[in-house]
Computed example of a mutant assay.
Amino acid sequence: MSIRHGLLALLEGGPRYGYQLRTEFESRTGSTWPLNVGQVYTTLGRLERDGLVAPAGEDGAGHALYAITDPGRAELHAWLGRPVESANPPRDEPAIKLAMAVCSPGADPAALIRSQRERTSAALREWTRLRDRAGTDGRDRRDRPNGPNGPEETARLLVLERLILAAEAELRWLELCADRLADGRAAVPSASDGGREG
């Protein structure tokens, strides 16, 4: 996630100060990507340096406000219009770790799969809980006269659904890995053969 573009998107709604941007960013992303307020101000400084935001005075409490500029708006809309490149997927630590474990004498890939499955299952339960609670304020969403609570709730739900589906896919992949190891299709080298398969 591009934090700079996320901040530009928030500033398109009007001037804001750093802590406000941090809070709104976390709210819109379902509190799944926490931001350090120092990171927000560092990013704002870079955006200002690049001419994408500008100081916009202070609010009534003396907070320094920032506003998006026309070049910032153009940058934001160019970013929003570009699909995320799928041909170069981000590094996937569980996949890299398991690939290394399978080829490492003394490693226990099955234990790695079990511990990753537990961690991913816990994350899946938490994201599902957050999704199910999002914006319900104690009432079923169908009972609301105006339906879901608008764009912020929708944004949170979209992010949480993405995380849930990714966790479900990872659990399926881990099951496939466990089956492959159990079938002997991936023989783990022993220390006696110097890490080479015979």
Rank of each mutant, 00 (worst) to 15 (best):
G72R: 02
R73M: 11
E75W: 08
H77M: 00
W79K: 01
L80W: 08
G81T: 06
R82T: 11
P83Y: 10
V84W: 11
E85N: 03
E85Y: 03
S86V: 12
S86E: 15
A87V: 08
N88E: 15
P90A: 15
D92T: 05
E93R: 09
I96R: 04
K97N: 07
A101D: 02
A101Y: 09
S104Q: 14
S104V: 10
P105D: 07
P109W: 13
A111K: 07
L112N: 01
I113C: 01
R114H: 10
S115T: 15
Q116I: 10
R117G: 06
R117M: 09
E118R: 11
R119P: 01
R119Y: 06
S121H: 07
S121N: 02
A122I: 03
A123I: 11
A123T: 12
L124T: 03
R125H: 09
R125L: 11
R125E: 12
E126Q: 10
R129S: 00
R129M: 01
R129L: 01
L130H: 10
L130Y: 11
L130V: 09
L130W: 14
R131P: 00
D132V: 01
R133Q: 15
A134V: 05
T136W: 08
D137V: 05
D137M: 08
G138Y: 12
R139T: 09
R139N: 07
R141G: 03
R142D: 13
P145R: 11
N146E: 07
G147F: 08
G147N: 06
P148G: 11
P148L: 14
N149Y: 11
P151W: 12
P151G: 02
P151D: 05
E152V: 05
